[in-house]
Design a protein around this nucleic acid. Structure first.
Lengths: 251, 251
DNA sequence: TTCGATTTGTTCGTATGTATT
DNA sequence: TAATACATACGAACAAATCGA
């Protein structure tokens, strides 16, 4: 249960920061599931024993970080990976002609493995610990454009098997969220150019000696906990990576 | 002079949006120069004839977009391109070892030219209109890492010549800002992988057949007006492009 | 060094508007 | 229609940082 705040705030944080931390903690603990509404602002104000303006300021920041989503007249909801808006927050490959489109994923392989050099470091797990290693082809407009290797700690997804993965509805992050309560809220990507290995060139259907874009992504959930490490090889003959800084429409 | 607002708001915008628009207009018109303070919140509240809370909400958004910068006890300032914080907002190449460093720019050529295909489209200027075309090498740790071609409309920088460009202090965007009052506030980048032409490979000191990261950037000032089109070739043997979405520290 | 004026930061409270159910 | 929830706007009080007298 959430206790009053205004009374004994032992940290030196402003009240609204404290409220934000407590709400985030509730999210991390799964108190409110993705897609569900959190308590109304007035109710939170009561529970925390602070003014409604303070609650609004805390929620404002979480909305800015796309962790929560407000809807006037309805409530405030935990962001999900099923809304187009948030989907393109995590997927940045677009057609060179400007077309935005979501990819269709086809799994190539699914196996148990151990964390090697980069995996372990990026996922902040011990070297050699158990992981799942999944290979996918992502198609855009029916054509293969991206080859993915996904590495996740088995500990986070205990009973995830090939069947569950393939038969999921929606995106991979949607699966993490709906089935395991793990909500990816931030990613960090590092891009470089490289000549892909033979097999990948073949899979992407690109010409020999066509360089590819390599994206090394770490996905994080609350409190900067790494969830997934993913290496993508992108055929950039007809597509490119879009980084728009900072088209912040509304806010 | 800024007139009262609360009275005759003919648009259907909320007041604070209207305030934001007017402040942005003032910035675009050069009413307050980069680095200078805008009027205090209480003074703005008087001028616009709205409450201080409404002013704060308008400024909040501009601060979120890194257009303004608040400092408790001092005032609110127009963001400049001389602060480390904003510099890395526009420069994304980091060492693979994780080292962040700002590049040293060396000009290779500076000439007058005309807008060709992509230039014209991206800069939203007529095909064939006059431009400046500048080539640079950017060094990190003393070694060449990036080759740049910069295209800007001559109309925006009427008297910009080679000497002014080379002898500037600080960054290129700092020059646009300090000398021409043009404040780059947003960039959009499209990345792909490609084999660079011979000369660029040589300039970057990379091995034959080493692919490079190609970054096509459009820089915008207020009201989404394009200012500069820049194509960069990056040697990603020891460096990579960092896209962190979204490490929003404080907010 | 101290003090006071100025400016932003935080918190509270209230009233009213608008969207949803 | 009524109740609920978020959105906008106002105002007040005090805290904290800055700066110059």
């Amino acid at each position: 249960m959430i206790s009053s705040l205004a009374a004994g705030n032992l940290t030196f944080n402003p009240l609204y920061k404290e409220v934000k931390i407590r709400i985030t903690r509730g999210l991390a603990a799964g108190a409110w599931k993705p897609g569900a509404a959190i308590p109304s602002e007035s109710r939170l104000a009561q529970q925390f024993n602070v003014s409604i303006g303070t609650i609004r300021k805390a929620i404002d920041e979480l909305v800015g970080e796309k962790i929560l989503l407000r809807q006037q007249g309805r409530g405030t909801f935990v962001a999900t990976h099923t809304e187009d808006r948030t989907l393109f927050f995590f997927f940045h490959i677009v057609g060179k002609d400007g077309g935005k489109e979501l990819p269709v994923t086809e799994m190539l392989s699914f196996r148990r493995s151990k964390a090697e050099g980069e995996d372990a470091a990026r996922l902040k797990i011990p070297h050699g610990s158990r992981t799942l290693r999944i290979h996918n082809i992502l198609k855009l407009g029916g054509k293969p454009v991206i080859f993915d290797e996904i590495v996740v700690p088995t500990a986070l997804f205990p009973d995830l098997d090939e069947d569950t993965f393939v038969k999921r509805e929606g995106t991979i992050y949607g699966l993490y969220q709906a089935r395991y309560g793990i909500n990816v809220i931030r990613i960090s990507e590092r891009l470089s150019a490289a000549n892909p290995p033979q097999q990948i060139t073949a899979l992407l259907g690109s010409r020999q000696r066509t360089p590819a874009l390599v994206i090394k992504r770490v996905a994080y959930t609350y409190n900067d906990t790494p969830v997934e490490y993913r290496v993508s090889w992108v055929n950039t003959e007809a597509h490119e990576y879009l980084s728009d800084l900072w088209k912040n429409e509304a806010r």
